[in-house]
Simulated scan of single mutants.
Amino acid sequence: MKYKIIILSIFITTISTTYAFAQDSDQIQMDTRTMEEKYPDVFTKTKANHPDTAYEIGRKTKGFSSDFIGDQGKLQFYLIYAQHLQKLNTENPYSTYRKQFIALYQSINHLNQLIDTQVGYYEQMQSMLIAYAEYSIYEINTIDQSRLDPIDVDKQKKFFIKSIQQKIKTKNQNLHLNNLPNYSKNQNRLAEELKKIDELITDAYSLKVAQVFHYTYY
């Protein structure tokens, strides 16, 4: 069966902590069930893999590359995998993090896009980060809470924010972004995104996932 790739847009609901697929909601739920049955080693139900790991497992699985073709197929996989993880997180007490983590990852992604001259990677990441956020929710439920060392969140958060500010300064210099006509406008946007990141990091775990996401993908 050749899987039909469907480009979906995503929105975060403002009245709850769930996200939804703006188009073809019934279709993607059906496709999620189909893919779970077709690729059980990818869409595991006992111990879920990180989205990147699941995708790499899929690439080595017969038929997967025909179902998820090229860049569009990769995006489709991450959206379906996010739906799969959300199902696994149904009874997760930490699902209240969902809206917060998606917004946090979106701000980090947008901030990095503003200090780069390429846009394709960040547009792709805007969809993929939904799966990363959902996995962050899944992962915290599998971690022994005693392993989360108590830290001074405010102090560590300031250090993280300063490291981002330094990256912005370095990028501005190296890419001569100050010569672009929209430089001033972008600086205001960067300040807004930094403020959002600061506000969305509310505890040790949200700081941890923000750092991992930022340093891994940017």
Rank of each mutant, 00 (worst) to 15 (best):
N89T: 05
G73K: 05
Y105I: 10
D152C: 02
T44D: 08
V119N: 05
D71C: 01
Q173Y: 15
Y217R: 03
K74T: 11
Y132V: 01
Q76H: 12
K155F: 15
D198P: 00
L104G: 02
Q100M: 04
T142F: 12
E91D: 13
Y105E: 15
I80T: 07
D24A: 12
S25C: 00
Q76M: 12
Y135S: 02
K162P: 00
S136Q: 07
A54P: 00
K185R: 15
K208A: 12
N141Y: 12
L114D: 14
F64H: 05
L200Q: 10
T61I: 06
N186V: 01
Q100G: 01
Q126G: 06
T96L: 10
S95F: 13
L180H: 03
Y218S: 01
S65N: 12
Y217E: 06
Y215I: 07
N112G: 05
N172A: 13
K195D: 10
A22D: 14
F21S: 01
N178M: 08
T14S: 12
D144R: 02
D26K: 08
A82S: 09
Q106D: 13
K4V: 11
I28P: 01
Q83N: 04
Q83G: 00
T216M: 08
H110E: 09
N179R: 10
N178I: 07
K99P: 00
A131I: 05
P51L: 03
N178F: 13
Q124W: 14
L75H: 11
Q126E: 15
S127W: 14
F160V: 00
A133N: 05
I10E: 10
E193N: 03
T170F: 09
V209D: 04
Q173G: 06
I102K: 03
T90R: 07
N109M: 08
Q165I: 09
K155I: 08
E56W: 08
F68L: 05
S146F: 09
Y105W: 11
T96G: 11
Y215T: 07
A22W: 10
Y218I: 02
S65P: 00
Q106Y: 15
R189N: 11
K196W: 15
I57H: 06
G120W: 15
A82V: 03
Q72Y: 13
D24Y: 14
A210E: 13
E192S: 01
E199I: 01
Q126M: 09
L207R: 05
I168E: 01
Y78F: 10
Q76P: 00
L79N: 06
K62E: 15
F21G: 01
R98G: 03
I102G: 01
H176W: 05
L180Q: 09
Q166L: 13
T90S: 08
